[in-house]
């Protein structure tokens, strides 16, 4: 069963007068409840594909289906609501809201979804506990280490138990030890929450931990390979 269907997806950017193809006719299925990594060299289209999967960008042609919903049919408001409900994001630079505490950052997606305050607090506490930061709930992001911030970001991404979690180079800003711990945590959380994790990464540790790898080169899909081969 697939969580995501990508049909003949193309995306071009214009750099001045030059047309730069970022993705060229990509079609693929991404399995549900799996750990999938988008891999490839810089400029291969990983981030572009991830942005399109997450509904952050719109394709020039083709379409994406997430959790049974064609994203190209949604207007901006409905797409925002869809992201809030069904997609979690983990960013390379963590992107926590600096004025909110760890708990409030985790609560924020729940707030957008209209979850009651008491339930928000309960779920945020549960998630922070799950990522090992129960005692840091009242800390602001500036008071946390990089690894701790990424843990909070993972808890935030899972707050609404979304169908899909997208992570753009989640370990790129962490040392290898912390990166390994974060990968282990994400793997653990993916299993615990039965959700689909999709990453873009060069990280060999992450590739090794993935169930599936999607290889991209020059905006085109290379032959899907087994994890071990990709690693």
């Amino acid at each position: 069963m697939s969580a995501i269907e990508v049909i003949d997806l193309s995306r071009h950017y214009r750099l001045g007068s030059v047309d730069v193809p970022a993705l060229r006719g990509v079609s693929l299925s991404i399995a549900a409840n799996a750990f999938t990594v988008l891999s490839g060299p810089s400029g291969s289209g990983k981030s572009t594909l991830l942005n399109l999967l997450g509904g952050l960008d719109r394709p020039d042609s083709g379409h994406v289906v997430v959790a049974g919903q064609r994203l190209d049919t949604l207007d901006d408001n409905r797409l925002s609501d869809f992201r809030a409900r069904h997609i979690g994001f983990v960013f390379q630079h963590f992107n926590l809201l600096p004025v909110l505490t760890a708990r409030e950052n985790v609560e924020y997606p729940l707030l957008l979804a209209g979850v009651a305050a008491s339930e928000r607090r309960r779920r945020a506490a549960e998630l922070l506990d799950a990522v090992g930061l129960a005692d840091r709930a009242a800390n602001l992001p500036g008071q946390l280490s990089g690894g701790q911030r990424q843990r909070v970001a993972i808890a935030r991404a899972l707050a609404l138990r979304p169908a899909l979690v997208l992570a753009d180079e989640p370990t790129a800003n962490l040392d290898s030890h912390t990166g390994a711990a974060i990968i282990a945590l994400m793997r653990d959380m993916q299993r615990q929450y039965q959700t689909c994790f999709v990453f873009s990464s060069h990280d060999a540790q992450l590739l090794a931990a993935a169930d599936h790898a999607v290889l991209l080169r020059d905006g085109q899909l290379q032959a899907p390979a087994a994890v071990k081969e990709a690693a």
Binding site: N77, A84, N95, L112
Partner: peptide, 16 residues
């Protein structure tokens, strides 16, 4: 700007 992008990614509408 990044914070705005993050909020939008998390699902906050333009009106928000």
């Amino acid at each position: 700007t990044v914070e705005i992008g993050t909020l939008r990614a998390l699902g906050l509408r333009q009106a928000g």
